[in-house]
């Protein structure tokens, strides 16, 4: 690791750069997004299956980028970046997932006109 007065280009984060690794990350990102595009344009899957395929391709692409672009790992130089990422990911997923889930279940429950075959006059009251 570089210290005061040492050549900064000897720092481990500079030495970590590698053409092969970056090219692998680049190729993986392009190929996975191309696969996702082709799946989208085929229009053969049901919506839930489509979502799972796209989600899986995105996760693989992000893991490839984390490993090959950012060089994340368990080495002492990178461990704290990996730890902070692992602690941030649940916040990221819960923020999106819980908000979307909450509003999507809220709409059918409180908006009578979005419920098929039911209008306001037939709405059961709490006592029924």
């Amino acid at each position: 690791m570089a210290t005061h007065g040492q050549d900064p280009l000897l720092h481990s984060e500079v030495r970590q750069a590698s053409t092969g690794g970056y090219f692998a990350g680049y190729a993986a990102s392009i190929v996975l997004m191309l696969a996702a595009l082709l799946v989208t344009q085929q229009h053969v899957l049901t919506y839930p299956a489509f979502l799972w395929v796209i989600f899986s391709l995105v996760v693989i692409a992000l893991v490839a980028q984390a490993a090959l672009f950012f060089g994340l790992g368990l080495s002492p130089a990178q461990a704290w970046k990996s730890v902070s990422l692992i602690l941030t990911l649940p916040l990221f997923v819960f923020t999106i997932g819980l908000s979307v889930w909450m509003f999507h279940s809220l709409a059918p429950r409180v908006m009578p006109d979005t419920m098929p075959g039911m209008d306001m006059t037939q709405q059961p009251t709490l006592l029924e």
Partner: peptide, 12 residues
């Protein structure tokens, strides 16, 4: 991003 990554290889 790949081009910038090559810049950091050039820095090395």
């Amino acid at each position: 991003v790949f081009a910038y990554s090559l810049a950091s290889v050039a820095m090395k």
